[in-house]
């Protein structure tokens, strides 16, 4: 394959995007087929996880704080954290898919080497990986929604919007994950982004407590984290309202997702095409 044509950065981004075709869905299908070989075990964690969290936080912490103030309104603590759990679920599913799992396919199973001998381009393969990572986010989120709905923590029909939100959020975290897969020397290196990015986001994105209890500087920092915006979107939808200022969060996700995905594909090309 020829490298991206001249014309600087814009030219190479265009060349990269131009190399993506509908054939990337074949890679998505391959990963889906593998997933469904063991679908029963795959569905257990997102189904049980929220129940554990709700027990720990609801019965445990909830006994100390039964209600929290959120956007000027008192809501039950479990009602508050339920959408936070959905947001973190999407992040974990998508990020771990395009880091650990993609790395295994790339390095240990040489799956991409074999696919590259077919009419698919490297960009097709990576786009398929990203779509699959996002789909894992959707699946995990949807399964968790079933469990949370059983506790009456989601208000329908508004809560259904969470599904498309989870796809967009999944794509963002899949893109972020792919960037790391493009640069890590070995699989253990994923510990760094996991503990430097993912775990802080998990805890400090308005998932388990409202951000306005934090000092101002920490709030500004939290606003910069993508998971904060995902949690905002999901919480409003779960509470049965969709205010106009959600557009800000949506815009953030859309604007962050595209460069992350492009950068992820670019870094994988740099790593794999030698």
């Amino acid at each position: 394959m020829s490298g991206p044509a001249g014309g600087g950065r814009a030219g190479s981004v265009l060349a990269l995007v131009g190399n993506i075709s509908a054939r990337s869905l074949r890679v998505w299908q391959r990963n889906r087929d593998v997933y469904f070989v063991t679908w029963k075990t795959n569905l257990v964690p997102p189904l049980l996880e929220p129940i554990l969290y709700l027990l720990a936080f609801g019965a445990g912490i909830g006994a100390l704080v039964s209600e929290v103030q959120y956007r000027g309104e008192m809501i039950g603590y479990t009602t508050f954290i339920a959408p936070g759990l959905l947001a973190t679920q999407v992040m974990f599913q998508a990020f771990f898919e395009t880091t650990y799992n993609t790395f295994v396919r790339m390095y240990y199973q040489r799956t991409f080497d074999s696919i590259m001998t077919t009419p698919l381009t490297l960009e097709d393969v990576m786009a398929g990986e990203l779509l699959w990572g996002a789909s894992k986010g959707v699946i995990g989120c949807a399964v968790m929604m079933v469990a949370l709905s059983a506790f009456g923590l989601l208000r329908y029909p508004h809560a259904l919007v969470i599904i498309p939100f989870s796809f967009l959020a999944g794509l963002l975290f899949a893109g972020l994950g792919l960037c790391f897969t493009g640069i890590v020397p070995q699989i253990d290196s994923f510990n760094f982004p996991t503990f430097l990015f993912v775990m802080p986001m998990f805890l400090f994105s308005g998932t388990f407590f409202p951000l306005d209890v934090l000092p101002r500087w920490a709030q500004v920092l939290a606003e910069a984290l993508p998971l904060t915006h995902v949690a905002n979107l999901m919480r409003e939808a779960a509470l049965g309202r969709l205010p106009a200022d959600l557009l800000r969060d949506l815009l953030y996700l859309a604007v962050a997702t595209i460069p992350l995905c492009v950068a992820g594909i670019h870094l994988m090309r740099r790593r794999l095409v030698k």
Binding site: D33, V34, R110, T111, D113, S114, I115, T118, L120
Partner: peptide, 19 residues
């Protein structure tokens, strides 16, 4: 570079999809 996640036959049918 065979796909360890699939059976012998599925290795071929999945590959056929790429084409």
């Amino acid at each position: 570079t065979l796909d360890p996640d699939f059976s012998v036959r599925k290795n071929l049918t999945v590959f056929a999809r790429y084409f």
